[in-house]
Simulated scan of single mutants.
Amino acid sequence: MVPFAQQPHLNSNLQLRGDLCVAAAGNVQATPVMKSGMQGQVDTTYLAAANYLKAIGFTNTAEIARVLDIAMNPNSLFVQYNDAKRSTNVNARPLTVEDDMQPVVGFFVQQGLSTQQIVQVITAHPPVLSYDVAGRLQPFWEYMASIGVPDVAAAVARRPSLLGLDVDANLRKIVDYLQYVETPPEKIVQYITTTI
């Protein structure tokens, strides 16, 4: 099945014209399309994910489609191509509500983020839906607390892009360098939470 973002034309009803017609924003009736004898199907993965995002507080249908495309499509047209480091979501894959999305949202709730903050974080950094809680989010939270960030949840709510920093791939290296050049701990926290 072809992900909805790889379809060529998007109309105002968020129905895609091509081999498949997918309504990616939940509660919208998808109209299967037949082309060249191929029977169209509704992508239930996208519909379930879209309905879940609506259930947690998303209201904008186009925004739901954008978030899901970035989180699930490694070739998303919505990523920032002006920044080579952010040109793809390497974790993008078809996500299930139960195995992927609910654990991320549940983790944010446990960390004290409000529903509105969770929606804002996911909207600003859609790849977070494809992150593993135990392998990525928990280590990030623990590391941020270990370097002295007083309220990691507040820092993430202010700057959701922080979640794009992987502890072992880049965050630890940044902090190690700042410590090496004898940057005071409070300045390191300031840099990490405001500018990096």
Score class of each variant (00 low, 15 high):
141 W>Q: 10
86 R>H: 04
151 D>F: 00
161 S>Y: 06
143 Y>W: 01
63 E>P: 00
30 A>F: 13
121 V>R: 08
162 L>F: 06
61 T>P: 01
108 F>E: 11
51 N>V: 02
178 L>N: 06
111 Q>Y: 08
110 Q>P: 00
155 A>F: 01
32 P>G: 06
169 A>E: 05
40 G>E: 12
50 A>K: 10
178 L>F: 11
102 Q>W: 14
145 A>S: 09
51 N>I: 00
117 Q>R: 01
9 H>E: 11
184 P>L: 08
77 L>Y: 04
178 L>T: 14
128 V>A: 05
113 L>T: 10
67 V>W: 13
147 I>G: 09
145 A>T: 15
132 D>Q: 03
68 L>P: 04
96 T>G: 00
19 D>P: 02
48 A>H: 04
136 R>S: 10
54 K>C: 04
123 T>H: 14
96 T>S: 07
150 P>R: 05
113 L>Y: 11
161 S>F: 12
34 M>G: 01
86 R>A: 09
117 Q>A: 04
32 P>T: 05
65 A>R: 12
92 A>C: 12
56 I>C: 03
47 L>S: 11
191 Y>I: 08
113 L>H: 06
8 P>R: 07
33 V>K: 15
90 V>I: 13
55 A>C: 00
133 V>W: 03
186 E>A: 14
119 V>A: 00
61 T>H: 14
165 L>Y: 14
69 D>W: 14
116 Q>P: 13
23 A>F: 14
57 G>H: 12
132 D>R: 01
182 E>H: 03
128 V>R: 06
53 L>R: 12
64 I>S: 09
195 T>F: 11
89 N>R: 01
159 R>S: 14
80 Q>P: 08
36 S>W: 15
106 G>Q: 10
90 V>P: 03
187 K>G: 11
132 D>H: 13
131 Y>I: 04
100 D>R: 14
56 I>R: 08
58 F>W: 02
146 S>D: 09
187 K>M: 11
184 P>H: 13
106 G>H: 12
106 G>E: 12
92 A>P: 07
64 I>N: 11
80 Q>A: 12
160 P>V: 12
99 D>W: 07
170 N>M: 04
189 V>Y: 10
190 Q>D: 12
192 I>P: 13
167 V>P: 00
126 P>D: 05
177 Y>C: 04
69 D>T: 03
162 L>M: 05
146 S>G: 02
13 N>P: 04
194 T>F: 02
20 L>N: 12
115 T>Y: 01
119 V>S: 06
59 T>K: 15
172 R>W: 08
37 G>S: 10
155 A>N: 03
193 T>W: 06
5 A>L: 02
122 I>H: 04
101 M>G: 00
38 M>P: 00
9 H>V: 10
124 A>E: 02
1 M>Y: 13
83 D>T: 15
109 V>M: 06
